[in-house]
Amino acid sequence: MLILDNRSPSQLVNNTLDSENLDNNDPNPKALSLSTIKVATNDFSSANKLGEGGFGPVYKGILPRGQEIAVKRLSKTSTQGHEEFANEVALTARLQHIYLVRVLGFCIEGDEKMLIYEYMPNKSLDHYLYDPIR
């Protein structure tokens, strides 16, 4: 079992943050409430949908203090449980690499499970990875 800042994954995901701003330099993911994420994404508006992958849809959001985020919303058909999701949050938060977008936080509320990433504006990660000049 992974331990993140002396809390188990279950303890980590049961602590919902009231803050409206995520610190990009903090290595520990922060829990955000579903209501905060709904406001940030305009209730998961199709206008804010960036795409969809195996995990589920991804939405752009803006927190009240102006910070841009990308929200990966776990598909409702996923069989991933609470503890597995908590372990995934803990593991992905510890991964840091120049070519990886940072996990800033998460949301687990009711049957909703979401990962909150830093938002990469303008172009996809592929553009930066396969740019022949860089």
Rank of each mutant, 00 (worst) to 15 (best):
S19V: 10
E20W: 07
D23W: 06
D23H: 06
D23R: 12
N24I: 14
N25A: 12
D26V: 05
D26R: 12
S33R: 02
L34C: 10
I37G: 01
V39E: 13
T41C: 04
N42K: 12
S45P: 04
S46R: 06
S46C: 09
S46F: 10
S46D: 15
N48K: 09
K49G: 07
K49M: 12
K49Y: 03
G51E: 11
E52K: 14
E52Y: 10
E52H: 12
G54H: 15
G54P: 13
Y59H: 14
I62A: 03
P64T: 12
P64K: 05
G66V: 03
A70G: 00
V71G: 01
V71Q: 03
L74D: 04
L74M: 15
K76P: 13
T77I: 05
T79V: 09
T79C: 14
G81H: 09
G81W: 08
E83L: 15
E84F: 07
E84A: 15
A86G: 03
A86H: 00
V89W: 01
V89I: 02
T92Y: 11
T92V: 15
H97Q: 07
L100F: 10
R102C: 08
R102K: 15
V103S: 06
L104T: 03
I108M: 03
I108V: 15
I108Q: 04
G110M: 10
K113H: 11
M114I: 01
M114Q: 00
L115A: 10
Y117E: 00
Y117H: 03
Y119N: 02
M120E: 07
P121H: 03
P121T: 02
N122D: 02
N122C: 00
K123Q: 13
S124C: 15
D126W: 09
